[in-house]
Design a protein around this nucleic acid. Structure first.
Lengths: 152, 152
DNA sequence: CATAATTCCTCTAGTAACTACAGGTTCAAG
DNA sequence: CTTGAACCTGTAGTTACTAGAGGAATTATG
């Protein structure tokens, strides 16, 4: 069958070095189907081609931008078909952008409150510590309202 | 022994209602030691006092501000001793603030790149889709450099 | 008061996206 | 041919919950 030349193919360690992705993570991506199974040596060790490295870099870059593994899976599927319309890819990217913006907004609110909290505190006793005090107050914030997904 | 009057104590469902925290989460917080075990009815159902609700609100507020469960545990310990100096509480809050600011910075970078990515894409074909293209390029970004903790 | 509906109980497993072993092979260098 | 490094599989741990099974207790209704 299509046994590619294993000479000049990369071991998993080399791929790790080349991409900065941990060995375990590479195996993990294979396990969840993001990376295709590479050829193996007779002793069952993985041997990768340059195409695997390209694909892995794509994955890493997307993950780095905060795309979920599922989103990456979609993007890879789309990338595989160059003649398809790119609406979907666009949509995924825009959804991600919206999510990132939402997280930023939420975190800015947090930062503001934390600043207030931390600023009141300069080496006194717990008894009059702003940090504890503010956390104990429930007036300002949502509980009990409904809880919502927090952006951590 | 010190069996408090269970009349006028709240069921777990009431506590959930009062705080907006799910029943399962309340039990979970007990399990990991954030909430003390409440009294039980003869039939082993939990009955909470107002103090439990206060403590739970403290926890929820802190979690809402992004403090980790471990940080919350620390804060609760500190809050229990009003005569202790408040340096530690201060430190925890400042660390949290720094973490939040770091996440914001990182997410702003992401948003910027995502904007560039999404803006180039207006209903063409995948073959010349910016989204896919940018992800496939590895020049601009860190791989392979070392990976670092991403702020998701 | 009897029954039905609701709430509660414990325990286990699942989520995301990896990371970290343990215990054993295989490979490449000397 | 013998090390020692790199590799293998498989399982369990991480964070902070969430969801479900299967059954008991409580509360509401007739």
């Amino acid at each position: 069958m299509a046994t590619t030349t294993l000479e000049r193919a990369y071991s998993i360690g080399k791929v790790s070095e080349a991409t900065g992705c941990k060995v375990e993570t590479i195996r993990f991506y294979e396990q969840i189907g993001l990376l295709p199974e590479p050829e193996r040596t007779e002793g069952k060790q993985r041997r990768y081609l340059a195409s695997h490295i390209d694909r892995l870099r794509f994955i890493l870059h997307a993950r780095d931008l905060g795309f979920s593994v599922e989103a990456v899976r979609e993007l890879l599927k789309l990338a595989a078909d160059p003649s398809a319309p790119c609406e979907q890819a666009d949509e995924i990217a825009r959804a991600q952008l919206a999510a990132v913006r939402a997280k930023i907004a939420r975190l800015m609110d947090l930062a503001e409150e934390l600043e207030r909290v931390a600023d009141g505190c300069h080496g006194g006793r717990i008894a009059d510590c702003r940090v504890i005090e503010v956390l104990a107050e429930h007036g300002a914030c949502s509980h009990g309202g409904a809880r919502y997904d927090d952006g951590r």
